[in-house]
Every structure is written in structure tokens, then in C-alpha cells.
Nucleic acid binder design. Structure first.
Lengths: 137, 137
DNA sequence: TCACTATTACACGATATCGTGTAGTAGTGT
DNA sequence: ACACTACTACACGATATCGTGTAATAGTGA
């Protein structure tokens, strides 16, 4: 992107077809040592905003688990109306988080942005470690 | 918490006084293999919601960097009105993300919830790796 | 007590969010 | 063309968010 931080990303799929992202030189708190520009703050806000919703979290989690799913599948799995699912998928698509593929009458969605899975994973992990009573707004 | 997942957290402070959180048995995508309960989704939403704001991100980032800061300090550093800063800090305090300490007329805030730093760190890291055009709403 | 500073409580208004219902489109088969 | 399914576009209403301005509170010193 604009600024170059020396982060190396290694993405590979294991036998189960699952994607693992390894971050080298992650050196925790590396980013915390330099000032956070308003632009970066806005980009980060945009990223977290997409994850800051009950529905989208379950939706994305479902997509991460199943690699690909149609609107109807998801609506059925999450017990939601297709419109609501399509709504959120549209939003997620606009921000580049997911991508779609048409097959007959169905439209299959998949996670596109690599930030989703790791962040979801870390969040769930950390929420266990911490009490994270933070939940109920 | 309610459910027990075998995650081990190790927190320690190095010579510089910075806290590092190591997660053992993190095994990426572990959480993605079991169904995400609506409750967990809500808790995760709550966590991400606190990070889904321009102001709070800069605020938390500042707190992570300086370990502790008063309302006035932050307002000054981020070029914001004290009320706005206090507002957000209040919200962050309600959700257990930060804690406060009074010293004279000033109130010093610090990051309390261990999820904050790692998530911020990972997000910034990943946004570099990915294009993450996702930003602009 | 008075003045002063730092912080907070609260109501207001502008804006954003999200599910719903209705209507529309695309693809497929008859 | 017609019916049917899967999805989407859009307007609406309820609710949430967030900075602002005003007023209140807490701490400190004269």
C-alpha cells in the first residue's frame, strides 16, 4: 500500500483445503511504536466496522468454514431472510471482503479479503483468554 | 468463561514495560471448525464494535503506546474536544476496555482489556499485507 | 468561600445501521 | 410465453452512533 512496512505474508492451503496465513516478523506491538495516521485509523475503522455486526460475523464465519455458500444456504443456516443475507453480502462485497460467483440461479459467495479469518480467529481466541465482558453493549 | 476452550494465555512485561500476550495452542482456524453460537457472535460484535470507530482506534492506539494518559492529554494529542474524548473513554470503560485512575484533578486512563492491543496490531499488520481497500465505508 | 482547571453528565441533531416488505431481475424448465 | 426459484434493489421505520454545547461535579489553592 502507501506505506511500506516490512511484513511478510505467507499463504498456503493444507490438505483440508484450509488457508493459513502466517505473518513473519509480526513482532507484536510493532505498529504501536509509530504514530497512527488518521488515514490508517479510517482504514482500520472500515475493516472493523465490517466485523462489528452480529449477522456479518456469523455470515463470515459460515463462509470461512464452508469456503463457499449461496445466499439461500446461508439464509437457511443462519435462520434469516434471504434479503437480509443478501443485504449484508452486498455490503461485504462493496468493501471487498467477499466475492461472488454465479452458478445457474444461485450466487455463491466466498471470503476474499485475507483479514477476515485471522481477525475472527484471534478475536474468538482472545475473548476466551480475557473475560471480555465487553460484549453486551 | 462459559465455555472452556483450551487456550493458554501468557502475559508478561518486558524491560520497556510493554506487555506481550502470547497465545499458546492458537492453532489458527481452530474456532472455525465449530459452530459459532449466537452468544459468541454477540460477544464478538461487542468487541469489534468498540474498535469500529476512527476516534476510538486513535484513542486506544495512543493509550497502548503511552500506557496511561489523561483526558486532556489525549484530547490534545488527537486534536479533539475533551468532551468527545471523555465520551468515548466512558463508552470504552463501560465495556471494560479501559480503566481509570484519578490523580489530583486529572483522570488517567489505561487499556485494561487484553484484546485491544493484539487486535489492533493484527489489523494494522494485515491491512498492509492485504490491499484492504475495504476501508472507505 | 471563591476562582480555576479537569472531567463528566446530559440533551440535541445529524447521520448511519439494519431488518422488513414490496417489487423487480436473472436463470431455468415446460 | 408462463411459471417457478434464487437473488437483488429500494424505500421505510426503528434504533444506534457520535460530536457538540451547556451545565454540573471534583479537586486544588488562595
Amino acid at each position: 500500500m502507501a506505506k511500506s512496512r516490512k511484513t511478510t505474508k505467507t499463504t498456503h492451503a493444507d490438505s483440508a483445503g484450509r488457508t493459513t496465513v502466517q505473518l513473519k516478523a509480526r513482532r507484536s506491538n510493532l505498529e504501536d511504536r509509530k504514530l497512527l495516521s488518521p488515514e490508517d485509523a479510517l482504514r482500520t475503522e472500515g475493516l472493523f466496522k465490517m466485523l462489528a455486526n452480529d449477522t456479518r460475523i456469523r455470515l463470515l464465519h459460515h463462509l470461512v468454514r464452508s469456503r463457499e455458500a449461496s445466499v439461500g444456504d446461508i439464509a437457511n443456516a443462519l435462520d434469516m431472510k434471504p434479503q437480509a443475507v443478501s443485504n449484508q453480502l452486498q455490503r461485504l462485497s462493496d468493501t471487498g471482503m467477499v466475492a461472488s460467483r454465479r452458478e445457474g440461479v444461485s450466487v455463491f459467495y466466498r471470503v476474499k479479503n485475507g483479514c477476515v479469518a485471522p481477525l475472527l480467529d484471534l478475536a474468538l481466541c482472545l475473548m476466551d483468554a480475557e473475560g471480555c465482558d465487553s460484549a453486551s453493549r
